[in-house]
């Protein structure tokens, strides 16, 4: 299994700044994008913490044991779960019940409001269902890779995906202009 990051990870471990910059450019935007959907405002801190872990491990990274990107996402998701658990509990239902009557008439604003509504519905999902949806639909990873990133079996991932998709569909069913056929 060829890992496109292996050389740069080894370089980062040796103190090679250019290799480090390449790793950051390749992974930071994608990690931040998922972390934002998982955590909101704390996302940047979480990604910084992930990269700090990376520097600590880079010198001892053993290529071939696991794909680097998989490991990176796994660390990031565990960071997210940990931060979410430290937060005070919020009622999940509240997330999807907002802004029904605040959709502006203007089409662009409407699309923006609908995007916000989708984001809120996503935020209302349990953390592991949300992670599964983000990895498979937002980042477009395959089920096998996403399951490895989450540290679960493919069957468990598929179960999380099925439940997450069903909940999202229930909560967003009124956005039928996106689906075309549904009422």
């Amino acid at each position: 299994m060829h890992d496109p990051d292996a050389e740069d990870v080894a370089g980062a471990g040796r103190g090679d700044r250019a290799a480090t910059a390449r790793l950051i450019a390749r992974h930071a935007p994608k990690l931040l994008s998922v972390a934002r959907r998982m955590l909101g405002g704390e996302a940047e801190d979480a990604v910084q913490e992930v990269f700090l872990r990376l520097w600590t491990h880079a010198a001892h990274w053993q290529p071939g044991r696991a794909k680097f990107e998989t490991w990176l996402y796994r660390v990031m998701l565990n960071q997210c779960y940990d931060r979410l658990r430290r937060r005070p509990t919020q009622p999940l239902e509240a997330a999807s019940d907002v802004a029904d009557d605040t959709v502006p008439a203007d089409t662009r604003l409407e699309a923006n409001a609908q995007a916000q509504e989708i984001a809120r519905a996503l935020e209302g999902l349990p953390e592991r269902q949300r992670a599964a949806i983000l990895l498979c639909h937002f980042q477009e990873y395959g089920n096998v890779e996403a399951a490895e990133m989450m540290g679960i079996s493919v069957e468990a991932l598929e179960s999380l995906l099925a439940r997450g998709r069903r909940t999202l569909r229930t909560r967003l069913a009124h956005l039928n202009d996106f689906t075309g056929e549904r009422t």
Binding site: A28, P29, L32, S33, R36, R37, A111, Q114, A115, I118, A119, A121, L122, I133, L134, H137, F138, L161, A162, G164, R165, R166, L168, R169, L172, L175, F178, T179, G180, E181, R182
Partner: peptide, 20 residues
């Protein structure tokens, strides 16, 4: 009628990919 998978796909694709 579209599947839950396709519905979710369409919804999630509506989310903006924010730059860092």
């Amino acid at each position: 009628e579209i599947s839950d998978r396709d519905f979710t796909d369409r919804m999630v694709k509506r989310l903006p990919q924010e730059a860092p």
